[in-house]
Design a protein around this nucleic acid. Structure first.
Lengths: 126, 126
DNA sequence: TTTATATTTAACCAATTGGTTAATTAACCA
DNA sequence: TGGTTAATTAACCAATTGGTTAAATATAAA
């Protein structure tokens, strides 16, 4: 799973990491501050690993200030993921009629295609 | 990873599965048709597992037609994921000035907060 | 120099993932 | 019935993930 989009979606596929992003949406914070809500559930090294996943995905940027590591959200990765999803917008918006029309023009109608191509030993009875 | 959002993002975190969704965005198709572009790379059972991940995440719906299993995209799950991302839109849109203003009003300014709360044995020299 | 705080790294482990091949199920046709 | 196509399930395996505890690193304070 090496491509950026996969790294981003994978990073988002964990409630702890999404909660960290939610926390960071309130502004920059350091690691131990981010960790606080989770320390009953998991250790600091576990937190550190989650942050690394977010950082490797480009979802956050970690900087240095004395012994602290302030983190902040990096919007670009989230934008890329959202842009990818936008191409499917028609599947949850618009009317069903329009979706149907869209799918028909997309493929010149698959069923006609199958009938024309032949080599159909089996066909759904229906 | 049991919540819906995690299932959805996890399903999207794989290029094979995203390619399958892209194929399905052209219209309903059965499993072997979906599998065709990947059969040089992996076996049919592998495809079957990927489709199960997509199905469990609610991203696709699989139906029955004779011995075939036509699949189609289910928009709802994608909408939920997109809706979640929308809350971060300000991090990649708008001006930096507006983001800065947003973060300041979000937290009444964290740095002032730290100074007031005290118990600061250590402080970044800066 | 020693001590304290903040964070990461190392080493380890159990569970999950993503693939395999072989067997099985389901539906249809001759 | 027996044969063919479509797809899933079973059993297995190596690599990855997500956690642990203990040790190490970085910076500042006393």
């Amino acid at each position: 799973m090496r491509d950026n989009l996969s790294l981003t979606f994978n990073a988002l596929a964990d409630p702890t990491r999404r909660a960290m992003l939610a926390h960071l949406s309130q502004g920059e914070t350091n690691v131990s501050d981010l960790a606080k809500p989770f320390l009953k559930k998991m250790s600091l090294p576990a937190i550190s690993k989650h942050l690394k996943v977010l950082e490797d995905a480009g979802l956050i940027v970690k900087t240095r200030e004395a012994q602290w590591r302030p983190c902040r959200i990096n919007g670009a990765a989230l934008k890329d993921a959202t842009d990818w999803m936008e191409q499917y917008r028609i599947f949850w918006e618009e009317s069903f009629d329009r979706l149907d029309e869209y799918l028909k023009t997309m493929t010149q109608n698959k069923k006609i295609n199958i009938k024309k191509k032949g080599k159909k030993k089996y066909e759904a009875k229906k």
